[in-house]
């Protein structure tokens, strides 16, 4: 009986909701590296493209991806004004090691902590690494799950397109 209600409710939503191309960033409170509450609705990059990358200190491909991008990040920023937000899903086991790791690797990213996966869940992330590309209007226009060496070139091509005001084909 319960299930019938829920299914009906969702049918309502699914039929009612128009098909959409873009998607906005969901709103939830997580933390920044200094323990301050951070509302994800405040994620923005002044009309320029933004990358949101979910990672963890125990995830090798995540660290490979962010370390590879770190080598190019200055050029990326100069050319497109892109900002990278690295959201760590490390829980209490490793959370205190995030800042030392980020500083140790000399990352220039904006780093956020999502220790109970609240933002991860709202963004429908199954596994890390998972990378989202956000356009200047704060709409998520592209995403990629997992990381293979060289994936960052595809990401950067899309960032360049956005920075040039072009739209991204799905």
């Amino acid at each position: 009986m319960n299930k019938a209600i829920i299914f009906s409710l969702f049918l309502l939503f699914t039929i009612g909701v128009k098909a959409q191309d873009a998607r906005s960033i969901p709103e939830v409170e997580i933390k920044d590296l200094y323990g301050n509450v951070f509302n994800t609705a405040n994620l923005s990059n002044d009309g320029k493209p933004m990358v949101i990358s979910f990672w963890a200190t125990w995830c090798s491909p995540c660290k490979r991806e962010l370390n590879n991008i770190a080598e190019e990040y200055i050029d990326w920023q100069d050319e497109t004004g892109v900002k990278i937000v690295a959201v760590s899903i490390d829980d209490a086991r490793n959370m205190q090691k995030v800042k030392p790791y980020v500083d140790g690797q000399a990352w220039e990213y904006e780093v956020l902590l999502d220790p109970n996966g609240d933002f991860k869940r709202l963004m429908n992330v199954n596994n890390v690494p998972h990378t989202f590309l956000v356009d200047g209007n704060g709409q998520i226009v592209w995403q990629h799950n997992s990381y293979s060496e060289g994936d960052e070139y595809e990401l950067y091509e899309l960032v360049q397109k956005l920075a040039a005001g072009e739209s991204i084909e799905h």
Partner: peptide
Amino acid sequence: KSLKFLLAAVFCS
């Protein structure tokens, strides 16, 4: 009952 809900849901949507 579930059928009624379903119909109601479709109607509402």
